[in-house]
Structure formats: structure tokens, C-alpha cells
């Protein structure tokens, strides 16, 4: 069921996404304007299942994120802009929350539900106009599914990385001995215990090995994202299923994407269209 949508607002939590994701998605839907708003991330610390409200006038990260998402389609940000036709919230599902995707989604939905209390008219707008997706475990994982993007992010020598380009980047794990070997040497930001499954740390390592300038999200990350080859991320079964959810969700409204064949494998966490949904995709 496609609708005529002029503008899609992305609610994102990283500078690279803010700078790069609108252009990246516009490759797939050239007639649609994408813009991005930045807000606080949700998953850099373990997300508890209990959504005990933050008291004392403080607003939780989930409430802030949900407010952005709901407002994007219900309250014009300025007189000139008007509301977006579609809003998509996108956050990383960081390592500490890797097995808690359902919890993250449930917490976000609870916050949306709270905001919509007493706003019957807006419920339908949000249910048809808002969705929430996850990059697993983080944006930089996507670059390991596209050799060219990896070169933009990690430097021109990065194709020699030990992560196979046809593996599922959303289950990122490397066995690069030079990267993983224990060391007391200080001064390497990537040398953390969880590094084997951390794509951004591996990118930092690869750049350091190649004597390239340090990885900058706003420069290297944004460029890699802007020129991302989406097709290569989803060209094999059971690969990039969270990305598959995102593209399937958007295609449901915007029509078939340019250069990507549908249907795609999707994650049940972020593509479970329901009979009476709160959000479009879950």
C-alpha cells in the first residue's frame, strides 16, 4: 500500500546518521525528501525492561525519543516545514543490549503510548506514520557489508580485513589476531574487552594499522553512509535482517526502492506489522 509522501523525517542518535542517512536513503527513493533530527541514544547502557517513570520533572531518553518521533508527524516544527509524511526512528542496538532488542522496542512503544494518552486523533497518524528501527550492533556494522563503504570508513586498505564481506554484518565478529591479541600497551581507544564484536573499534584499528587519520563519524562515517550500496547489504538470505526490516517498512509506503529487490528477509523484532499497531512496524 503506497502513499504519496513528500518528506520523511529520520530521528537518529548519531552524527554520521544525521549527516549521511538522508542521502543514503534518497538513493533508493529519489523522489522523496529525507531529513534527519538528532536526539539522545537509547542503548549505550543496558536497557532495563522495567519502564519506571523518571520522576522529578526529568524526562527519560525513551520519552525524549518518542516525543521526537510523534511530533515529527503531528506537530509542525516550524511554520515553513509542516509535518513529515513519515517518521522513522533509528537507533543502534549496542552490544550491551544485543539480546534485548524486544525490550528496547517495548520501552520505546511504552513511551509513545504514554505520549498519545488522550490524543485519540493522533494515534492513527502515528500508527500509520511512525516506525522504529535498529542498526545492529551499530551503524558501522553496515560498512562491513559493502566493500566500498568500508574503504570510505576504514581506509583504502580495509578490504584486507578479516571480516568476510558475505558474512552477516549484524552478527559482527572478527578473529583478527593482531586486533585481538592482549596487550598492556596504552593509547589505543579500540583496545577494549568487547572489541571482537565491535565494528567501530575494528574500523579504528584498521585505520591505525594503515596509518590513516583517526576515524571521524562526521567525515568518514557520513561519507561511507551517503554512498552506501544497500543492495550489497541484503543480497543474501538471512543477512542484514534489521536493515531488511527498515527497507521493507519504507517500501511499504514509498514503493519499491531503486536497485534493491524485494522481498527481503526481515527481523521479527522490527517488522511485525500488527492488526492494531501502535507504530507502523511493531
Amino acid at each position: 500500500m503506497t502513499r504519496s509522501i513528500d518528506r520523511v523525517t529520520l530521528i537518529v542518535t548519531g552524527s554520521a546518521e544525521k549527516l549521511g542517512l538522508p542521502a543514503a536513503l534518497q538513493q533508493l527513493w529519489p523522489d522523496v525528501d529525507f531529513d534527519a533530527q538528532l536526539t539522545d541514544d537509547l542503548t549505550s547502557t543496558e536497557v532495563p525492561a522495567d519502564s519506571t517513570a523518571v520522576g522529578g520533572g526529568l524526562v527519560s531518553k525513551f520519552e525524549k525519543f518518542a516525543q521526537r518521533l510523534v511530533d515529527a508527524v503531528t506537530v509542525p516544527r516550524s511554520r515553513r516545514e509542516g509535518c513529515a509524511g513519515l517518521a522513522v526512528g533509528i537507533d543502534d542496538l549496542e552490544l550491551v543490549n544485543l539480546d534485548r532488542g524486544e525490550v528496547v522496542v517495548a520501552r520505546l512503544k511504552a513511551a509513545v503510548d504514554q505520549i498519545l494518552q488522550g490524543r485519540t486523533g493522533d494515534r492513527n497518524t502515528v500508527a500509520t506514520g511512525c516506525s522504529f528501527h535498529l542498526l545492529v550492533p551499530m551503524l558501522e556494522a553496515l560498512f562491513f557489508g559493502d566493500p566500498k563503504a568500508l574503504q570510505h570508513a576504514a581506509g583504502s586498505g580495509a578490504s584486507a580485513s578479516t571480516f568476510p564481506v558475505d558474512a552477516d554484518f549484524e552478527a559482527f565478529a572478527v578473529g583478527d589476531d593482531a586486533y585481538l591479541e592482549p596487550s598492556d600497551e596504552v593509547g589505543h581507544g579500540w583496545r577494549r574487552p568487547d572489541r571482537s564484536r565491535h565494528p567501530k573499534r575494528y574500523i579504528r584499528f584498521l585505520r591505525e594499522q594503515a596509518e590513516e587519520p583517526p576515524y571521524r563519524e562526521t567525515h568518514h562515517g557520513a561519507r561511507a553512509l551517503r554512498e552506501l550500496n544497500w543492495e550489497s547489504l541484503v543480497d543474501a538470505p538471512l543477512r542484514g535482517r534489521f536493515v531488511g526490516s527498515l527497507l521493507t517498512d519504507l517500501a511499504f509506503v514509498l514503493g519499491d526502492p531503486v536497485g534493491v529487490q524485494l522481498p527481503l528477509d526481515t527481523s521479527p523484532i522490527t517488522w511485525t506489522p500488527q492488526h492494531d499497531p501502535l507504530l507502523r512496524n511493531c
Binding site: 549527516l19 538528532l38 539522545d40 524526562v59 506537530v75 516550524s78
Partner: peptide, 28 residues
């Protein structure tokens, strides 16, 4: 005048400024 006051009312202005909703350095 830059933003809809109804929209602004949902946020802390410091939060919006921090996230570059207004008064942000040019990016790119």
C-alpha cells in the same frame, strides 16, 4: 519565529540546541 512554539513546548531548549536543532555549526 524559527520554530513552532507548540513543538518547542515539548522539549528543553538546551536539548534542542545540543542536538543542532537551531544555532548549529554548518555541517558536512
Amino acid at each position: 519565529d524559527l520554530r513552532n512554539t507548540q513543538w518547542l513546548a515539548n522539549y528543553a531548549l538546551g536539548d534542542l540546541y545540543k542536538h543542532g536543532d537551531f544555532g548549529a555549526p554548518s555541517e558536512g
